[in-house]
Design a protein around this nucleic acid. Sequence first.
DNA 1: GACATCCCAAATGTATACACTGATTGCAAA
DNA 2: TTTGCAATCAGTGTATACATTTGGGATGTC
Lengths: 226, 226
Amino acid sequence: MRKLARSGLRTASRAAAGSLREQVYNLLRKDIITGVYKPGEALREEVLAERYETSRTPVREAASRLERDQLLRFVPNKGYFVRHITVTELNELYEYRSIIECAAAELAARKEPDPELLAQLKELSEVRYRPEDRRSYIRFIEADTAFHIGIARMARNELLVRASTDLRCSIERLLYAGLDLGNYATGLTQEHREIYDAIRNRDEPRAREVMMRHVLGSKSKVFSLL
Amino acid sequence: MRKLARSGLRTASRAAAGSLREQVYNLLRKDIITGVYKPGEALREEVLAERYETSRTPVREAASRLERDQLLRFVPNKGYFVRHITVTELNELYEYRSIIECAAAELAARKEPDPELLAQLKELSEVRYRPEDRRSYIRFIEADTAFHIGIARMARNELLVRASTDLRCSIERLLYAGLDLGNYATGLTQEHREIYDAIRNRDEPRAREVMMRHVLGSKSKVFSLL
DNA sequence: GACATCCCAAATGTATACACTGATTGCAAA
DNA sequence: TTTGCAATCAGTGTATACATTTGGGATGTC
């Protein structure tokens, strides 16, 4: 049985993707974000181990990370459950997001820019999606994530980068939920461009302000879908 | 050998302190913060397992949490190392701290206060320490942590509470380092009182401003010890 | 003497067996 | 019929055996 598993796809992908716990983390994270597992669903270690062709140990380590990412809830002696997002938590999420990302935008505008990062940011800010085109929407989500994390990178603060990265778990999950609900992301590209411009112009107050509008706009779009 | 371990102190403390991984996490965290392990020191899973009278499994889970807390650095296939704090990281730490804690103070002043929490905050803000008295200084550190996390609680945002809690790992470590270096914490009690007053008076701009001064003051004190 | 190669040892990475706990169900007695 | 107790079971908590990787040291050759 070991031999069989080892000889599968896993071995090939392993060298590329790192340790099993990382692979499981990435796969499980994606499956939760994209809605493969429904909120409230119980995830048992053994079942997950089978599904991802590994043992409980890497699954446990991946799951405990996902608990920190707010995607899973852990109950001692009971197991892991896909988190529900309550309205209260949604409010807290966007409040926190505005704190982190507005600070990141302001700092990104303040500090000496890395030309390469700036160029990447420009490209990312121009990614659009076509309504009704699921694939282009998914590409947009990925660009959106890279854009927002890129701003934290420009702020040159690893703790902010990490906070932004952590936030994206929850945000992407909402964006994927919006996928089935209509044209969530209308107008976001234009806002991204404004944020980029403010940062390029080293205009700190405007960078903060435009980012705040962007976050609040996203929030009200999400709430309108409820 | 198992039997022996089970019959030791551990069994008694276990029910109180929760699972072994939690116990190991708390003990190891404390030992790193208080300087039992020196920066750069390599911590091997098996050795830690012996030291805390358990096996590698809970140690691994505790260590991976401590890596997220910025107390350990993990190198694949090599192990865990107690983190050095560089000057760059110290700057980033205080920059991030000011973002999180100023936002928390402002929100705490904005939102409807919980009377019980407010009373606790008042008490905590009054804790002083006597110079040269190591024990009173340690009590002050604990009160300081509870005070700052308490403000995040008043802000009624779990994500902020968590961010503040995470920050305290690194901050406490600095405070314990200051323990051997002199009267680090002079004047902090007075500043705590000002922060408390601003929050009680629901004065948002002042809460933010006083907290900013407090954080920047702490930062320059830490830097002066280098 | 220096360098390259191979092998071994030490440490983590993973799998799995065993322990413990909490919940549920079934049975018996009131 | 209802209630309480006990036994069983499902699932995590922990320990440990085994696999894999990596770095260093020893040995051999140029």
